[in-house]
Write a protein that binds this DNA or RNA. Structure first.
Lengths: 300, 300
DNA sequence: CGTAAAACATCATATTTCATAATGTATTTG
DNA sequence: CAAATACATTATGAAATATGATGTTTTACG
C-alpha cells in the first residue's frame, strides 16, 4: 500500500492514546477497542505516513523521532478538529466574556488564547480589561471580570498554569551599563511581583540601586525603558526589538521564573464562564501536554 | 447516527472540492469518484458535524453559514495534514535557505511563514537577511539570497502575492498634529515605494510638507516616529502599540495599498529553493484561497 | 533454568463501510 | 411540455476494519 496523502484522524486519536498510556492494550481499553485493533491501526498509520513511528523496546514499543514529531502534529490536528466541531454545534457559547489581563500578557500570551476562543465560539463577545495584576485580582473577586491572567497566586481562586517564563533584567538596546554606579531601576508602585523579585535579589547580593523612574503601569515602564532611563525586572514577554537583556556578565543576579495562571472565581456557576474556562483549559492541555505525562520513549 | 467527534479528512477534501467547483458532479470528477459517492460523502459529513452544511438553491446546493465556517477550518486542517506528512517524509528539505526581508515584514508577515517552513522542513536551516526592498531586489538578482519578500514588482522575477496591506499615515501616539503647519515627514532615502506614494499624494493635494527626519532604514523610521518627530507613510505592518494613524479628519490624503510578493529568480533550478517556494505557495493558497475562486453561495 | 505472565503480532472471519451503477425526483431550459 | 441538468435514493458488491483466537517474543519469578 502506498503512503496516503490524507491522514485518518481516528488513527491519530489512537496514536495519542497509545503514546499517553504507553500501551497498546490500555489505549484499546480507553477507546473501547481490542488490542488487536490498536495494533492494526498503528500499522496502518505507519504505512500511511511511510515511516516507522515505533521501535521495539523489549516487549514494548517506543516512539521514534518521527513518532514524536507526528505526536505533536496529531495533538494540534485534533485540537483543530475539536475546535471546528465545537464552533459548529448549535449550542455554541454566546454572550459576553470579560477577561482581565496585564499589559505584557495582552501583547503576548493573550492573543493566541483569544483567537482560540473566537474560533471555537464565534458568537461569543470578548471584552478585555488591561490592568495591573493586583487590581485584576480585585476585579475578579468583585465580579467585574469573569477571568484573569495573572502571575499572582491566590488559593481561594480556581485556576491552572498557562506558561512559565524566565524573568530578566531588561533595558533599552542603547542603555549603557555602569557597573559601579547604583543600578538605575525602573519600578512600578507596590504591589508587584517583579518589584519584589528585583529588590529581594539586589538586597541579597548587596547591589546598590536607585529608583530612576516610578511607573504606575506597563506602558510607563516600556516608555522609561525605551527612553534609556534604566533597567527593570520583567518576564521575557515584555522584551521588544529595541530592548536587550542584562545578565550575569553585568553582575546582575538571576531572578526566579514567574508562572502565568488563568484564574476564575471558584464554584463559578455561570455556565458561560465555566464552559469558556473548560474550553481554554482543554485546548491548552491538548496542545501543550507533551512532557507533562511521561510518554513512550519521550525521554528526549 | 449520532454526530461523531472526529472528522474524516477525506470528506473534508471532497467538501472543499465541492465548494471550489460549485458542483457535486464536478467535484466527483476531480477526485475520480461518482456523483453519487460525493452526495453520500456530503451527507455523511453533515451527519458527523450535526448541522446542515448545504441548502437547496434551485437544483443546486449552496453553502450555509455553518458550511462556510467549516470550509475555512477544512482548509486549515488539510494544510496542517499536508505539513505533517511533508515533514515526516524522508525526502524532507535540508540545507540552507537564505531569505531577504524588509524590517517591517520581518516583524509581521515573515514569522508565520518561517514557522510554516520550519514545521514542514525541520532539517532546513533558515538565514534571514533584513534590509531595504531595493537592495534586497539586488541581492536576489545577484544570488546573495534565495528568495525575498518585497513590495516592489519586477517582471523579470517569478513570484506571487502574499498579502495586500493598506498604507497609512503613522505617527507616535503622543504626536500633536498641526493642521496648518507644513507636515513634518519622516522619510527614507530613495528609492522607496512609500516615499513615492507619500510625496505624490501630498503633491496632488497641494499639502505643504517638510522633511523632519531622513532615515536610512526602518529602525530609524521607527525611532523617529517614537520620538514624535513627525509622520510617515507605511503599511499597517509598521504600526506599534505606541503609535497611531492619521486619517482624513486630519486632512491627509488616502494612500494606495501595497502588495507584498514573495520573489525568487525565474527558472530557479536549485531544487531546494524551488521546493521551498512551492511549499510556501501551496500552503498559502490552501489556507487563503477563500474568495479567489467563486465559491458556492460565498457571496457574503 | 523453566514456566507463567505480559505485550504486541498475526490470522481467519464477521461486520461495517463505502463506491458504483442504475434509477428517481425536482428544477430549469428552450 | 419535453429534454436536460443537478442532486437523491437504492441495491449490491468490494474493500476496509474490528473481533476473537492464537502465535511470538520478552520479562518476571521461583
Amino acid at each position: 500500500m502506498p503512503p496516503s496523502s490524507t491522514l485518518d484522524l481516528e488513527l491519530l486519536r489512537t496514536f495519542i492514546a497509545v503514546a499517553d498510556s504507553q500501551s497498546f492494550a490500555e489505549a484499546g481499553q480507553q477507546l473501547a477497542r481490542t488490542q488487536s485493533s490498536v495494533t492494526q491501526q498503528m500499522q496502518r498509520l505507519e504505512q500511511s505516513v511511510g515511516v516507522a513511528l515505533f521501535q521495539k523496546q523489549g516487549r514494548q514499543k517506543q516512539l521514534t523521532d518521527a513518532g514524536r514529531q507526528l505526536l505533536r502534529r496529531a495533538r494540534e490536528m485534533l485540537a483543530l478538529n475539536d475546535d471546528a466541531l465545537n464552533s459548529l454545534r448549535e449550542d455554541g457559547l454566546s454572550g459576553v466574556l470579560r477577561i482581565g489581563s496585564p499589559h505584557d500578557v495582552a501583547d503576548t500570551i493573550l492573543p493566541p488564547i483569544l483567537s482560540h476562543i473566537a474560533r471555537s465560539a464565534p458568537r461569543l463577545r470578548l471584552e478585555i480589561d488591561v490592568g495591573r495584576s493586583p487590581f485584576l485580582m480585585e476585579d475578579l473577586h468583585r465580579g467585574r471580570v469573569d477571568m484573569i491572567i495573572s502571575t499572582r497566586e491566590d488559593p481561594t481562586l480556581e485556576g491552572f498554569p498557562l506558561r512559565t517564563s524566565p524573568v530578566w533584567w531588561i533595558c533599552s538596546a542603547q542603555y549603557l551599563h555602569m557597573p559601579h554606579a547604583p543600578l538605575p531601576l525602573i519600578l512600578i508602585d507596590e504591589p508587584s511581583i517583579y518589584r519584589r523579585y528585583a529588590l529581594e535579589a539586589l538586597e541579597q547580593q548587596r547591589i546598590p540601586w536607585r529608583q530612576a523612574y516610578l511607573a504606575s503601569n506597563l506602558i510607563g515602564v516600556k516608555a522609561a525603558i525605551r527612553a534609556g532611563l534604566g533597567v527593570t525586572a520583567r518576564s521575557m514577554e515584555l522584551l521588544g526589538p529595541d530592548m536587550r537583556v542584562l545578565g550575569e556578565q553585568e553582575g546582575l543576579p538571576r531572578l526566579p521564573d514567574v508562572t502565568y495562571h488563568l484564574w476564575i472565581r471558584p464554584n463559578t456557576h455561570n455556565s458561560l464562564v465555566r464552559k469558556a474556562y473548560d474550553l481554554i483549559r482543554s485546548n491548552h492541555e491538548a496542545v501543550y501536554r507533551s512532557g507533562r505525562r511521561k510518554q513512550i520513549a519521550d525521554s528526549g
